[in-house]
């Protein structure tokens, strides 16, 4: 049923730390690796070694340059995958019921055997979280690694989404954002986690932790005024050359 549940027992999701992400794309690769050979249809590539490579990814890392009014520009790496919205517009538009939000944990999934590949859910998603696989012609999206997080065949340490498990910088966190006492909820509260495009009314479960303010370096060393100044005027040959060129 593509009507959304009123509430979900848990709100499993990710917290992504934009202060810590180094933009290595390891999460992108591990996501593609795990999800192309487990849940659902594989994530195909078209022309992977040719002139125009293209493929299906459930997680992509953008990089943005932010120029403050004063000071240096900052480069911010920005991983983006399904935000498992509470008010997921992708679910309600689905005509077949292939898209659904789970009552038990809030994960938004696609039942691929019901998907007619109309693409309307991808149109409805403001975040670009859904991609139609060009080979399988069904809609693919982040499953929050539903085949890992409850998988008792895996060691307990691996029972989290593969992007989180892989991140070498600790920029990704997984947990229940519906429980105010969970580690992720406390992290969000402490760091002022935010929703992307809140005006779209999707109520995303995933939160983004904004970059911390940068340290401001002093203009010069405190001892600099007491040091011998660097020669401002060139002398000797360079001095002559400088004067000669000035006159021309």
């Amino acid at each position: 049923m593509t009507t959304l549940p009123q509430t979900t027992e848990k709100k499993l999701g990710l917290v992504i730390d934009l202060d810590t992400c180094v933009g290595c794309h390891a999460c992108v690769i591990s996501c593609k690796g795990w999800n192309t050979e487990n849940y659902g249809a594989p994530l195909s590539d078209q022309d992977p070694y040719g002139a125009e490579p293209s493929g299906t990814f459930l997680n992509r890392v953008h990089s943005f340059e932010v120029q403050p009014p004063q000071g240096e520009a900052q480069l911010i790496h920005f991983p983006k995958s399904c935000l498992h919205c509470e008010d997921a517009p992708c679910v309600t538009v689905c005509p077949t019921g292939a898209s659904y939000k789970r009552v038990e944990d809030g994960i938004v999934l696609v039942n691929e055997s019901d998907c007619i590949g109309c693409g309307l859910c991808a149109w409805a998603c403001p975040y670009g979280a859904r991609e139609m696989d060009a080979q399988e012609k069904v809609m693919k999206k982040c499953t929050l690694c539903v085949d890992r997080i409850y998988n008792e065949n895996l060691p307990e340490i691996d029972r989290e989404p593969t992007c989180v498990r892989t991140c070498p910088a600790g920029a990704r966190h997984f947990g229940d954002l519906g429980d105010p006492d969970s580690a992720v909820s406390q992290l969000v509260a402490e760091r002022g986690g935010v929703d992307l495009m809140p005006e779209q009314g999707t109520k995303p479960v995933n939160k983004y932790l904004p970059p911390r303010p940068k340290d401001a370096l002093p203009e010069f060393d405190v001892l600099a005024p007491f040091l011998e100044p660097v020669i401002a005027e060139p002398k000797g040959f360079l001095g002559w050359l400088d004067k000669a060129l000035e006159k021309i």
Partner: peptide, 12 residues
């Protein structure tokens, strides 16, 4: 991006 409070955002 929710980065607007730092400065002007540009896709890099």
């Amino acid at each position: 991006t929710q980065l607007g409070n730092i400065g002007t955002v540009r896709a890099f």
